[in-house]
Design a protein around this nucleic acid. Structure first.
Lengths: 210, 210
DNA sequence: GTGTATTTGTGAAAAATTTCTCTATCTCGC
DNA sequence: GCGAGATAGAGAAATTTTTCACAAATACAC
């Protein structure tokens, strides 16, 4: 019943988040149920795809009616592991780190930035959003108490691998990397890259044939 | 010769940017040539994949030797349309918008933020990074002169569709969207979503079975 | 020059993912 | 309750993407 996930396609996981976002929005707009085709229309994802994606985890819909949005949100949240709060360590107190530490979107979804780190002594001790900046060398000591398992890397490319190594050494298992480099990490560590320059370059490709 | 691209797989385009990043790095490290397997090792992408990806656009390697990194960088840059400077319009002067306007990574790759916009009168007229913040209603007037074709949306979800509509109305053809919503746009407009919360949720999925 | 070791480019095979299609199921109005 | 209409779930087909494997081409040592 609680869907023991076998082998779930990677693209499916990435879409689940989009479904969840859509479901939250529709709920906020006072809808109680929605059909797969309605969610498909709103997310731009094929309806059969949505049904197949969900079917990996169980049966959540009702023929003739569609999906109960409240229940679907709960299911998706549980599937994604969003039913627990996650503490997050932020490495990098530059412009991007500052923006991320003030970003309320994370907190609203159960991700709480609990500490920030940098190697720049001038930044150590300053406040950044709701947290104080520690020196990176204090990472182990700080996380010994916190036990956070999620890290965000918002440092220059040249410092990113050091940051990743430091995070993984203190027990972090999942990392969101904003540095424009391919990082090395043990296979059991999940790293997701959010490379803004790369995204721009991809956009550029679609503009090229001007 | 200049590789008339037929039908290029979407995943290929996204990898090209990774190859380019790797090539730039190796060049900075004084390498002159590299084999597909060396680039593969560094990017974590399969060597056959790399060769196949490149083969869509031409023949850039030398059997027995590998790829000349200088030439490959030039080819990849041209393929991605990075051989021209692009002006970028930024909508949203909040924390994220501020961080993006100060981000030097874009400029280094030929993306120049030329104007910023917001609907908050308190922000209009202030400086943000190298540009001044205009009211969103001035978008048409400002871009009539600039003619920018790339937009960045860094506004709350509730304002994102308005921002996109405004941008597309003034001729923008490619948009980098940071708002956590699925946006509607004509099919000839390229929209790439960089949804930080979604990325966190995907990370969360891989942490769930704790 | 010649021979051996590399490495590319690519057709074919394999794997993964998406889409189609249809059946069983459920809703809802009457 | 009954029947018409709607929709989920899922096997099968289609499509897309990745990987394999090898011939052809080149480099480089001697």
């Amino acid at each position: 019943m609680s869907a023991p996930p076998e082998k779930i396609p990677q693209p499916t996981i990435e879409r689940l988040s989009a479904y969840l976002q859509c479901v939250r929005l529709m709920r906020a707009q006072e809808s109680a149920t929605a059909s797969s085709s309605e969610i498909a229309r709103r997310t731009g994802i094929n309806a059969a795809q949505l049904r197949k994606d969900l079917s990996y985890f169980g049966e959540f819909g009702t023929p003739g009616l569609g999906y109960d949005l409240r229940a679907l949100e709960a299911h998706l949240s549980r599937i994604m592991g969003l039913d627990v709060e996650r503490d997050v360590l932020l490495v990098g107190a530059g412009n991007l780190g500052r923006a991320l530490s003030s970003y309320t979107g994370f907190g609203r979804r159960g991700f709480r930035i609990v500490a920030a780190f940098d190697v720049d002594e001038a930044k150590v001790g300053t406040a950044m959003g709701p947290v104080r900046v520690h020196h990176l060398r204090e990472l182990a000591a700080v996380n010994a108490e916190l036990g956070a398992e999620v890290g965000v890397v918002a440092v220059p490319a040249s410092a990113a691998q050091v940051a990743v190594d430091a995070l993984t050494a203190v027990g972090v298992r999942a990392i969101l990397n904003f540095a424009p480099v391919t990082l090395a990490a043990r296979p059991e560590i999940t790293v997701r890259n959010v490379d803004l320059t790369s995204q721009m370059e991809i956009l550029s490709y679609y503009l090229r044939s001007t």
